[in-house]
């Protein structure tokens, strides 16, 4: 009887060991295949695109029908649109995040706001684009313009900014706040002068990562900033002039919308190469945003805490 149980037990153990080995191998194979797929894709983009990137490609105008088009204006538009978006998003996101972290009291209203942030962050970006078309482009009569695009991207990015800010402030040690309170500072003074400097490193990291996301967004822009760029005069930097690259009321196709347009309706014979080059530029930019975000956050943290001269 006992020996039988023992035999059964050792059989079960053997089976368990085999199952363990098989499962481990399966997990490793799956995981490695993902890594291979993803690395392969990035490699593919780089392989296809890098050869096409040149100074000329980065600076010249796109061509509709002829060969040799570049991505100068779309690249500029992407960067400029990002700046406009961040100018609108950062103050709003900071305010919202600070409210959630420092002012909101637990209760119905706060959980409602949390739900709002969650809903807003899960909206398909094409729906936000449609909303932008209806409200910013048509109702506000901004037309297809950088400003309409920036507003749409603000909606797209705001929930993330709020969450980043809330988390950054929640990460500030409570003792810092208490020290400020005991000194008789107003709450707002504590937030802006005591907590903000402590929160800055994670704010910077989060914001740059969010910026990377904004930089690659296209669906929210098709119907807000438009799919064309008027001829620009790169020597005119007066934002009020219609030909000026800085004019926020002109339509602007970005790098991401340009890739989409070239792929879906590109007539130029080298459309695929252009899309590949532009995709490679886009991926490189996102990589740079990532690296910069990590590096920036770390450096700032070190700067804030280490024995460097500061004021």
């Amino acid at each position: 009887m006992t020996t039988q149980t023992q035999i059964l037990r050792s059989k079960a153990r053997k089976r368990a060991k085999t199952a363990d080995k098989v499962a481990t191998v399966v997990i490793i194979v799956f995981a490695l295949s993902i890594v291979a797929i993803l690395l392969g894709l990035i490699g593919f983009i780089m392989f296809r695109g890098l050869g096409h990137i040149s100074w000329h490609f980065l600076t010249s105008n796109p061509q509709t029908i002829r060969e040799g088009g570049g991505i100068g204006p779309p690249l500029f538009n992407s960067l400029y649109l990002l700046v406009l978006t961040m100018i609108i998003t950062i103050p709003l996101g900071l305010g919202g995040g600070i409210y959630m972290s420092e002012y909101a009291k637990p209760g119905k209203i706060t959980s409602f706001i949390r739900l709002v942030v969650e809903v807003l962050s899960s909206f398909p970006s094409i729906v936000i684009g449609l909303f932008g078309l209806l409200v910013f482009v048509n109702t506000f009569e901004l037309g297809f313009s950088l400003l309409a695009g920036a507003l749409a991207l603000t909606i797209f990015n705001l929930p993330l900014m709020v969450r980043i800010t809330e988390q950054a402030f929640a990460g500030v040690p409570r003792e810092q706040k208490e020290a400020g309170l005991a000194l008789g500072l107003s709450k707002w003074k504590i937030i802006t002068s005591i907590m903000l400097p402590v929160a800055i490193p994670s704010l910077v990291t989060g914001t740059i990562l969010a910026a990377g996301r904004v930089f690659g967004e296209a669906a929210a822009l098709l119907f807000t900033s438009g799919m064309t760029t008027p001829p620009l005069n790169f020597s005119d930097w007066n934002p009020l002039h219609p030909r000026s690259p800085l004019n926020p009321l002109r339509p602007a196709e970005t790098l991401a919308t340009h890739i989409w347009k070239v792929n879906s309706e590109g007539l130029a014979p080298d459309a695929i190469q252009i899309a590949a080059g532009a995709s490679a530029v886009l991926v490189i930019m996102v990589l740079l945003f990532n690296l910069f975000a990590r590096w920036g956050g770390r450096t700032l943290y070190r700067y804030m805490t280490a024995s460097k001269r500061m004021n």
Partner: peptide
């Protein structure tokens, strides 16, 4: 300190109201 606290309270509340107004108008328009 009272003025400051009012500024902070109003500024952050305006941001949150904007957030809520945005979602409400998206839902309404769509």
């Amino acid at each position: 300190h009272r003025i400051e606290d009012w500024i902070g309270r109003i500024y952050t509340s305006v941001c949150v109201v904007f957030l809520i107004a945005t979602i409400v108008s998206i839902v309404y328009f769509v």
